[in-house]
Amino acid sequence: MQKTKGQKLKDEVSKRAKALGFDLVRVTSADIGSVAGDRLRQYVAAGYHGSMLWMPETLERRSHPQNLWNEVRSIVVLAMNYGPDEDPRPDLQHKSSGNISVYARNRDYHDLIKGKLKEVASLLASRGGEDVKVFVDTAPVMEKPIAQLAGTGWQGKHTNLVSRELGSWFFLGTIFTSAELPEDTAEIDHCGKCWRCLEACPTNAFPAPYQLDARRCISYLTIEHAGPIAHEFRAAMGNRIYGCDDCLAACPWNKFAQSAKEMKLQARTDLVRPPLQQFLSFDDATFRKFFSGSPIKRIGRNRFIRNCLIAAGNSEDASLIPQVTSKLGEPDAVVRGAAVWALSRLCDAQTLRSLQLANAPFEQDAAVLAEWQQATA
């Protein structure tokens, strides 16, 4: 049977995308219906988005692809594997080291994938004669529901996308086009009775299967949340200083996962179990240089040091006390407050009291004073 023009174009796009390192290429119609948008509205109404104000601000544009661009007819969904060489969970036992989410152990995937998407989109535009737009994560696009409709995978009980071919470890990018391309079959849910991802969460961030309360999620707390981290979550954070992989790593479908083929997504050796002592010494310039090209850079040095201080407090490593103590003089109150908490976990009562007396004349922030009060109660 002779291929249609749309099928030929789709095949050519898929071939080019895979040559550039994408592992899966699927297509769905831009007419996705109203279900995903309704669920998004319910999520925001419940307050599960926390301080991510961009979610309610972009709610209507995000709720349907044609609200973002009314000329879109088809959406090409591309997946790129970033799987680790081994299960990252044993790294959590190295308490004097920081644990960084697998996806952030090398280059910023936004830049890497967007560049490759543009190459694929250019081919689509030149061959098809239609308009295109590319999006990676930061745009108001419901990537996961769209990817499920395209057959890339399904949203598991942890709300992340799971693939029968790639397991849990892959990035998504989308190309919106005004061209009409043949659609792939939507994927169905294969979670069955499994609850491992929900049981793995250290902070009970799932109110129910398929629902995530970001306000309790360690990835949100260490990356998106700017202020002090609530006490109830600090011990559960362990040594996680940027993101959390527990619900992803627990998924049995990872038996099909593969190690990343793209060199820029393979873990830097200095970001696998990096010593907290090293990071606690970073000033702003050192932080920016060390994490140049990394997604970690975007949270800024102070938020990163806050995370490292909480990890230090959970480390049981008294050798970190001098560096933690030095953070009591930091300009940022959130950093000082985290230092107080860490010292309350590392020091004996007499040492902690002497540190409080030494710093009391200079401390003016109410939140930090409250940390001291709670630490010495």
Rank of each mutant, 00 (worst) to 15 (best):
K3L: 15
L9W: 07
L9K: 08
L9G: 13
V13A: 14
D23K: 07
V25S: 03
T28H: 05
T28I: 03
G33P: 04
S34V: 15
D38C: 00
Q42I: 01
A45S: 14
S51D: 15
M52V: 13
L53N: 14
M55P: 06
P56T: 11
T58D: 13
L59R: 12
E60P: 01
S63L: 09
S63W: 10
Q66T: 07
W69E: 06
E71Q: 10
V76T: 04
Y82F: 15
D85Q: 14
D87N: 15
P88C: 10
P88R: 05
P88G: 07
H94G: 00
H94F: 09
K95G: 04
G98R: 08
S101H: 03
V102T: 14
Y103F: 14
Y103G: 00
R105W: 12
R105P: 02
R105G: 08
R107K: 13
D111L: 01
I113Y: 01
K116D: 01
L117E: 08
K118Q: 13
K118F: 05
E119G: 04
A121Q: 02
S126M: 09
S126F: 06
R127Q: 14
E130R: 12
K133Y: 04
V134T: 15
F135C: 10
T138W: 03
M142F: 04
M142G: 03
E143S: 07
P145Y: 05
I146T: 10
Q148Y: 02
Q155Y: 01
L161K: 06
S163M: 05
S163C: 06
E165H: 12
S168T: 15
L172H: 09
G173M: 12
G173C: 11
G173A: 13
A179I: 03
E183N: 04
E183V: 08
E183M: 01
E183T: 02
D184W: 07
T185N: 04
E187W: 00
H190F: 09
H190L: 14
C191A: 10
R196C: 00
R196E: 05
E199M: 12
E199H: 11
P202G: 02
N204H: 15
F206G: 07
D213F: 05
D213C: 02
R216D: 11
S219N: 08
L221M: 09
L221K: 09
I223H: 10
H225A: 11
A226Q: 15
G238R: 04
G238P: 03
G238H: 05
C247E: 11
L248Y: 10
F256K: 09
A257V: 00
Q258Y: 00
A260E: 10
K261H: 06
E262G: 00
E262Q: 14
D270K: 06
L271C: 07
R273K: 14
Q277D: 15
F279N: 10
S281L: 11
T286I: 06
G300L: 00
R301H: 13
C308P: 07
A312K: 11
N314D: 09
A318P: 00
A318E: 12
I321F: 01
Q323P: 06
Q323H: 12
L328Q: 12
G329W: 02
P331W: 07
D332K: 05
D332Y: 05
R336G: 10
G337A: 01
A338T: 08
A339S: 11
A342D: 06
A342C: 03
R345I: 08
L346Y: 02
D348L: 02
A349H: 08
A349Q: 12
T351E: 15
R353L: 12
A358W: 08
N359I: 10
Q364L: 07
D365C: 10
W372R: 06
Q373K: 15
